[in-house]
Amino acid sequence: MTEKRFNPLPGFRLTLGLSVFYLSAIVLIPIAALFIKALDVSWADFWRLAFNARALAAYKLTFGASLVAALANAVFGTLLAWVLVRYRFPGRRLIDALVDFPFALPTAVAGLTLASLFSENGWLGRFLVPYGIRGAFTPLGVVIALTFVGLPFAVRTLQPVLENFDRGVEEAAATLGAGRLRTFLTVIAPTLVPTIVTGFALAFARAIGEYGSIVFISGNVPYQTEIAPFLIVMRLEEYDYTGAMALAVVLMVCSFLLLAAINWLEHWASHFEKQ
């Protein structure tokens, strides 16, 4: 170890050692176990297990619904963040606090209550179902649940950036004669894009792994409303560990790619934020 500068604080070796040990025991070894086990499977078997018709249908639903939900969050999350930061109205603080509710609420409870809201007799379902809008036990239900769990990510990513947005920039545009719409489109929106995209990516990443809320609302019908994490559980219950593992490896690789993308996005956004 080459130390560039002398640091008089004690405890470096101890704390770093403990951190690495605990990290390995709790996180790294289990992850390694998955990939070590995966090495035992032949490529042909892996392909068959990970990309059969049922698995493909599950991926399609998982990624498709996550994409739609993340897009919905990008739109409504941006709107909500804007309204919360820029305007003062009765109930603002309550809504601001409630934005974290999907995050604080156990996903099982979220799934339970959403399924009940959108079911035929539910508060929303009784108005929507007669028009053919079925929110429970359909792919739409999956989208609804994923939008719910992803909302805090979209709002909370944008909110601080919006709060720190230099009002001087808007004022400068105004002194140069620009109207409100022009200022928004040419000066404000372009600067927020990287942050909105980051929020979108975070909501998307969260949605891909989501399990708890979906179990309740989707109905879990193979080929129709079965998401990839649920299929893993099904395989496990059939004691098909290899099948479960193949699906898990695909999900893990996707998550890692997304994580890398998000890190890059955040770097881009913070670079963008600095003047």
């Binding site: 170890m1 640091n7 176990a33 891909i208 898990a248 994580l259």
Partner: peptide
């Protein structure tokens, strides 16, 4: 409080559980 090589990697590893589906965690 300290600078050391591999710090960024360690930070990434600490974040890892956030990007792993809970079901996959159980499976692991």
């Amino acid at each position: 409080k300290f600078d050391f090589p591999g710090k960024a990697l360690l930070l990434t590893f600490i974040d890892l559980p956030f990007s792993v589906s809970p079901v996959v965690t159980g499976l692991m």
